[in-house]
Simulated scan of single mutants.
Amino acid sequence: MAELFPDAKIICCVRNIAWVMDSIERLIRQNAFDVSGLFCNATERATVYSRTEALTQGGRLVGFAYTALKEAFYSEHSHRLLLIDYELFTQRPDKTIALIYQFIREENFGHYYENVEYEAAEFDVKLKTRGLHSIRKKVEFQPRQTILPPDLFERFNNLSFWAEPSYSKANLMVAKLKANAPQTP
């Protein structure tokens, strides 16, 4: 990308992996009678443990995105990245968007955070994972209890390498990690 577009910048929204896994597990449970295309076989679909294990493998939905971001974060091009924490964005979208405009050196303009619905229902139906690409109408933070077992939540809770950066020149809009807080994202 740097060769083709020397001035390119990349903006990535990041979220604590434990909450990503919690969201996916909620979706799978909401579609309990569908055989989701996210999993290759019955063994992968069998339990919350096998589902999270499958999704975090290197070439899969969460694993690939995680390792690709980590590679970019520690690369010689990391200064081109802006990582935005999902929680911060949902709590303060106006301020977050203003900082994004600063990063890309463009003038800010008004956005409406009350009407941003999006769906890719046809794709989700083909994948047999209804709701995977559904976005709520309003941008807002919604705290909740996790449905992951405590050991799984803890396993993924400390993977947010971007929360305490070192050896990276990436630009960050992130909150400090909360120690052992499986109640709310």
Rank of each mutant, 00 (worst) to 15 (best):
Pro6Lys: 00
Cys12Asp: 02
Cys13Met: 11
Cys13Arg: 03
Ile17Trp: 09
Val20Arg: 03
Glu25Phe: 03
Arg29Ala: 13
Asn31Pro: 01
Val35Ile: 15
Ser36Ala: 11
Cys40Arg: 15
Thr43Pro: 02
Arg45Tyr: 01
Ser50Ile: 08
Ser50Arg: 09
Thr52Val: 11
Ala54Leu: 05
Leu55His: 08
Arg60Phe: 03
Leu61Ser: 04
Val62Ala: 04
Val62Arg: 05
Ala68Cys: 06
Glu71Trp: 07
His77Thr: 13
His79Lys: 06
Leu81Met: 08
Leu82Thr: 03
Ile84Asp: 01
Tyr86Gln: 04
Glu87Ser: 03
Leu88Tyr: 13
Gln91Cys: 06
Gln91Lys: 08
Pro93Ile: 03
Ile97Glu: 01
Leu99Ala: 05
Tyr101Gln: 01
Arg105Pro: 04
Glu107Leu: 10
Phe109Cys: 07
Phe109Ala: 12
Phe109Gly: 00
His111Ser: 03
Tyr112Arg: 15
Asn115Tyr: 10
Glu119Trp: 06
Glu119Asp: 14
Ala121His: 10
Phe123Gly: 10
Leu127Val: 08
Gly131Glu: 10
His133Lys: 12
Arg136Ile: 08
Arg136Pro: 04
Lys138Asp: 11
Arg144Ser: 08
Pro149Asp: 09
Pro149Val: 13
Glu154Arg: 15
Arg155Asp: 07
Asn157Tyr: 11
Leu159Ser: 09
Phe161Glu: 09
Trp162Ile: 00
Ala163Tyr: 04
Ser166Tyr: 03
Ser168Phe: 01
Ala170Glu: 02
Asn180Gly: 10
Gln183Cys: 12
Thr184His: 05
